[in-house]
Every structure is written in structure tokens, then in C-alpha cells.
Simulated assay, not measured.
Amino acid sequence: MSVMDKLKQMLKGHEDQAGKGIDKAGDFVDGKTQGKYSGQVDTAQAKLKEQLGGDGGQDGQPPQS
């Protein structure tokens, strides 16, 4: 079992909280880097949410299919 599978199992039922944590971490990184890498941070946030099952959309909007 991979680390990602273990994380998914632990977060099952708490996808919204995981999504909020990912957003908060991304905002922290943006603040520390003064927004210099905001594009890369946004991409990383989206990929993490996709992998972990957090809310796939940004800004509270549902994910697009």
C-alpha cells in the first residue's frame, strides 16, 4: 500500500477539511514567496485535491467535468 493510498484511507469522510487544509497551505506558501510562484502553487493545490478527493473546485465552486 502506497503512502497516497494510506492518506486517502485516513481522509475518507473528511474531504472538505482536506480541501480547506490544502487551500490554507497554498495561501501560506503564496504569502511567504510574495506570490512569486502562485501559478505553480495553484497547480499543486488542484492536483492534491484531485488525488486526495478534496473539493475539486476552487473558490467554493463545484469541479468542472
Rank of each mutant, 00 (worst) to 15 (best):
M1C: 03
M1E: 02
M1A: 12
M1Q: 02
S2G: 13
S2N: 13
S2F: 04
S2W: 02
S2V: 00
S2K: 03
V3E: 01
V3Y: 06
V3A: 07
V3R: 00
V3M: 00
M4D: 06
M4C: 00
D5T: 02
D5A: 06
D5Q: 08
D5G: 01
K6N: 06
K6P: 03
K6E: 07
L7W: 03
K8E: 00
K8Q: 10
K8D: 01
Q9T: 12
Q9I: 01
Q9M: 01
Q9L: 03
Q9C: 00
M10G: 07
M10C: 06
M10S: 11
M10N: 09
M10I: 14
L11E: 00
L11A: 12
L11Q: 06
K12S: 11
G13L: 01
G13P: 13
G13A: 06
G13F: 05
H14Q: 13
H14G: 01
H14M: 07
H14E: 05
H14R: 14
H14F: 10
H14V: 04
H14I: 00
H14P: 05
H14K: 13
E15H: 04
E15C: 04
E15L: 02
D16W: 02
D16F: 11
D16L: 09
D16N: 12
Q17A: 14
Q17Y: 09
Q17R: 13
Q17L: 11
Q17D: 10
Q17E: 10
A18R: 07
A18W: 09
A18Y: 09
A18D: 00
A18E: 00
G19H: 08
G19Y: 06
G19S: 10
G19P: 13
G19T: 09
G19V: 09
K20W: 12
G21D: 04
G21N: 09
G21V: 04
G21Q: 07
I22F: 11
I22T: 14
I22Q: 04
I22G: 09
D23S: 12
D23P: 06
D23M: 04
D23G: 13
K24N: 14
A25W: 06
A25R: 07
A25L: 10
A25T: 11
A25K: 11
G26I: 09
G26M: 08
D27L: 09
D27F: 08
D27V: 07
D27G: 04
F28A: 15
F28P: 02
F28G: 08
V29K: 07
V29R: 09
V29A: 12
V29S: 08
D30H: 08
D30Y: 08
D30A: 13
G31T: 08
G31S: 08
G31D: 00
G31M: 01
K32V: 15
K32N: 10
T33H: 12
T33Y: 09
Q34G: 02
Q34I: 01
G35Q: 05
G35E: 02
G35L: 02
G35K: 02
